[in-house]
Design a protein around this nucleic acid. Structure first.
Lengths: 261, 261
DNA sequence: AACCAAGTTTCAAATAATGAAACTGGTTGG
DNA sequence: CCAACCAGTTTCATTATTTGAAACTTGGTT
């Protein structure tokens, strides 16, 4: 009842995603090879999306790329719907206090999207950092968000994970992942034990509403050469304070003015 | 043959734009009031877009906002289709050299989208800056891009401008704007003579391909208290060098590898 | 000139979108 | 307590749009 296949619009967005996933401009024929749609159908989608500015077309090279209209829309999305503007000052502070890299992430269907990041050393962060995606089943932020998902939604998301073995601590089955999710719910926080990249570890906490819906997650990342899980665990209280502050601000944020009526 | 109204997909994207334009989460009924679509139709669009992650829905408050999937797509758009990654180092340099604010913009249908910005004083730039929009007919970057548009496209875009009088130098008719566009083509650069905001002036140059298609525009902005049009005009050669460097890099950028076949 | 590949258009059949109206569930107020 | 009201949701016959195989066009190659 959710994923892909809502009529024409769903299909068009699938095409849009495909173009985006190339990460470079693409020929029509390349898209066709990778697409489930017949030539004429794909052609019309690409035309429509280009007309709409969701794709841009370079007539000199005959190539399509994601369009600038997306940049405009994303500006709105980032400002209105992401936690980034609210969280900004809080994660600045957190990153300064703990002296490690802080990530702010949200869930997009079955994937993790990093919406902001603070690097202890280099306090500047860039647009190009926001929007990066990662797998949900083997990142700290991913797992803590999954842990607090209500059951019907969780089942759907778990079914979509690829369970690719990145390292030898990566979860490779839904069963083992579910086991850890229970632990996370019990503790209120979770770790990445080099599950995605060797040498990289993190602690993560969810950002929840008063009604316990998942808004996003925070993590503090480090390396095994600098610290260990126990070291990261000692930061949990500090991180929780930030998560709660963000949650509290998010609750009052929406709908600044309620004039008229 | 272009703007709005390509079938169902076009309508759905219109709805998406509408949600984004509120700049805050919206109730369904608010959208309905501002929408040309009947209740059931709008309802289905909103459902589909939410399913697809293009909108997010807050069930506690019954409100819709742009969804995080847009952030992911925009990341791809910004990286692949915008000039920002290519231009980065060039505009850093330009901004440092001239000691003024530099804007990098592209055209989205009839609007200007700022894809990057350098503030002389504060060298950091943020995601939240990228994606901002402005009118094409009364900004330096907008006018120089219009000036190099091929005629059928230009006519369409000019028809869509609102010609709102922001200040008393603002163009208020297509005719007067067309007059200036001819001058810009003759000179190769254009000004903003406090047309959008009093006290704010700029010089702008287009970024063109070898075939003279418009890729984007660069501008250097200042205030009437600090300099004047002649002062800005003296920067033209320096800015042109940057515009050409970006154009050259853009030409070789696309399609890094061309393996197989 | 014949060939080929990539891109574009056509058109009847199949499918999906449409929207007036009816329904639900919650809130207000008489 | 009931009636009116409102926001949101669902229904279903009608209508319009999408669909895709096939034919065609364009530009380059042998």
């Amino acid at each position: 009842m959710s994923a892909s296949g809502d009529g024409t619009v769903g299909k068009a967005l699938e095409v849009l995603d495909q173009v985006a996933s190339f990460g470079r401009p693409v020929r029509f024929s390349e898209l066709l090879d990778a697409s489930p749609f017949p030539k004429a159908t794909l052609y019309r989608f690409v035309q429509t999306l280009t007309n709409q500015g969701m794709l841009s077309f370079d007539p000199d090279r005959g190539m399509y790329a994601p369009g600038v209209r997306l940049v405009r829309l994303a500006h709105a999305a980032w400002q209105t719907a992401s936690l980034a503007p609210i969280a900004q000052s809080h994660i600045d502070q957190l990153s300064a206090d703990v002296g490690e890299t802080v990530h702010l992430a949200q869930l997009d269907t079955a994937q993790v999207i990093y919406v902001d990041k603070r690097n202890a050393a280099e306090p500047v962060q860039m647009y190009s950092q926001s929007g990066k995606v990662g797998p949900a089943y083997c990142t700290g932020v991913g797992k803590v968000m999954l842990a607090y998902l209500p059951d019907p939604a969780l089942a759907e998301v778990l079914a979509q994970q690829s369970y690719h073995r990145f390292t030898d601590t990566t979860h490779t089955s839904e069963a083992s992942l579910r086991g850890e999710l229970a632990d996370i719910r019990a503790n209120g926080y979770g770790f990445d034990r080099e599950e995605h990249e060797p040498g990289i570890i993190c602690v993560a906490l969810p950002i929840l509403t008063e009604t316990n819906r998942v808004l996003g997650a925070l993590s503090v990342t480090s390396t095994t050469t600098r610290t260990n899980l126990a070291g990261l665990e000692s930061l949990v209280d500090r991180i929780r304070a930030t998560a709660q502050a963000i949650s509290k601000e998010a609750a009052s944020w929406h709908f600044p003015v309620n004039a008229n009526t």
